[in-house]
Write a protein that binds this DNA or RNA. Sequence first.
DNA 1: CGAATTTGACCGGCGC
DNA 2: GCGCCGGTCAAATTCG
Length: 180
Amino acid sequence: MASSQALISSFDHGYQDQPNGLFGLRTDDHHHLHHHQNHVMIRSNELDRDHHMINSTDQNGINNDGDHEGKSSSAGKIKKGDKKMRKPKYAFQTRSQVDILDDGYRWRKYGQKAVKNNKFPRSYYRCTHQGCNVKKQVQRLTKDEGVVVTTYEGMHTHPIEKHTDNFEHILNQMQIYTPF
DNA sequence: CGAATTTGACCGGCGC
DNA sequence: GCGCCGGTCAAATTCG
């Protein structure tokens, strides 16, 4: 059921100008979700969710998976040759009761911080595959508790490592692989 | 017993 | 320079 409203927003890093939250995402614009059945899903499988993925009009190589060495390293902010070192991010807004949207990858949580103007914390995850430093953060809107914003950063350099015998996952993966 | 979370400390950037 | 803020690290703890 298309009860989900996926709002996509690709933003080039930089610092959020939005005084109101990290993402400029808004659902109240004209989201006429009639009603979303709040069936409690089992752990990692959500039925009603739409993920739309978009490719940001990329520019310079995003080869930023090489650097993630420990602390105090330029992980992300490279030199200032270009004033705009934008690392592509992809934000997904999803209606779901659970925060953990399973996209088939293995994630390791590495942080959690409270968000201003939001009573829910934001969680930071990393792909556990070696050499694949894809990050993602999950945040829940305080306005709509049912909305979960997931922000991906980077690209996976390895196949999905998960065998799911669920229809939902298969369908979901099809969505992932579809360019648009 | 190894792997994943938890959670406070820490760090760099920015505004004042 | 100092303090706030968003993001990350890492030791301790929990989980499988």
